[in-house]
Computed example of a mutant assay.
Amino acid sequence: MYGAKLRVTSFGGSSLPGLGMGATTVDGNLDLMNCRVQGGVNVHDACISGSLLLQGAHLSHAGDVALDGARLEAKGVVGTDGFRADGELRLLRARLSEGLHLRGATLHAPDGEALSAPGIQVPTDIDCGEGFRATGAITLTSATVGGSVSFDTASLAPARGNALSCHHLQAGELLLRPARATGGADLRHAAIGVLRLHDDHREQPPLQLDGLVYGSLEPHLPVGHRLELLSRDPDGYRPQPYQQLATVYQSIGQDRDARTVLLTRQRHRRATLPWYARAWGHVQDATVGYGYLPERAAVWLLALLATGATVFALHRPTPPSGTPHPVFSPVMYSLDLLLPVIDFGQERVFQPTGPTQWIAWLLIGAGWLLATALAAGITRVLSRQ
């Protein structure tokens, strides 16, 4: 029926060896409910003013395309109530104004793609939840969805590789909480309004996250659980997912969690650096937490100050004979050694001797190290802000 112009058309309950309706125009619904089609259905480039109705249908074209809806224009594709496709369900660059509804459907294409819909445009929703089962990969690359894309309680079981490819997907919401998934999900460079994942992070399939942008991440779990999810990325360390997660925490006022994420990012990045950069990274981490834990510098300063004050109180440095000098203060003298910029007038006058000279040099070196690490950390944080 290639190129035919039809009104409301129904093959409901029919058994067919195949159906070719490429480039067909249907003024109304195309009804294939409860059909049995052995050789596949071809509606590529068709224009249906109503919806393609597939409730209860069984399309069988194993190892090939069970439904070719490439560039299909319709209100919707409705494949609920026991719809089954043995073979690929292809909706390449289809335009469905009222959504793709596959709740409870079964797609079986173990050696390829169960649902192939790259570039699909849906102003409303794609619903593959509540009993949806796919044996084979699902591809929504570069799809544009105004509402939600749902895989809630779905079963996703590809023979190999990712269960779900959503890179460059644009959607208002993505519900990625399958009941079973034997492969991961590729979310690279997608743009999602609300990303909803499992309440238990251990049930979440591995996610490729580099370049993913989202406005909100649900549910709100402890930051450690989200960091564990990032660490399971099959691509290994990537800086952008950490920055994105920190941005979301900052947007809801959880600045401490945001700093934890950014600190973890620096620690993972450290493993990718040369040995000398890793060594300096360990110093920055231990002293000021890469600038995200500046209170560590105060702890180090107080500990060194207490050590220096104790040592120099017991072993006072001697001033040059016959030279006017201020009253010696072990605390101020230790501060003078520790703080490389501030001068309290003690270090210039009092000179330690013997073993205490090594203590003085140690305090001077530690002061410069703390100051440099603190300055580097603060500069890094301010530059990112």
Rank of each mutant, 00 (worst) to 15 (best):
H167S: 07
L293I: 11
A375M: 09
G147I: 02
D45T: 14
A297D: 07
D186L: 06
S216D: 09
Y242V: 10
P110F: 01
V288A: 06
A57Y: 05
R226D: 14
E113M: 13
W275G: 04
V26H: 02
L230F: 05
P219R: 14
H325L: 05
F344L: 15
I126M: 02
N162I: 02
T247E: 13
R71P: 01
L227C: 09
L209M: 13
G291A: 10
H58N: 10
W300P: 15
H168K: 13
D336E: 03
E130V: 10
V288F: 01
F328G: 00
P178I: 09
D31E: 02
V122R: 12
W275V: 14
W275K: 02
E218G: 12
G22T: 07
L273N: 12
L369F: 00
R380N: 08
H61M: 08
A109C: 12
G281V: 10
G184D: 01
R160K: 02
R270Y: 00
A360N: 01
A376G: 03
L263M: 15
L92E: 04
Q385V: 09
Q243C: 01
P340R: 06
A85F: 00
S334W: 04
Q266V: 07
S251I: 12
Y333F: 14
V8S: 01
T356C: 06
V65E: 05
S116R: 13
F151R: 08
G63E: 04
L302A: 10
Q55V: 05
Y2Q: 15
H220V: 12
L304C: 14
S216R: 13
P234H: 00
T307C: 14
A70H: 08
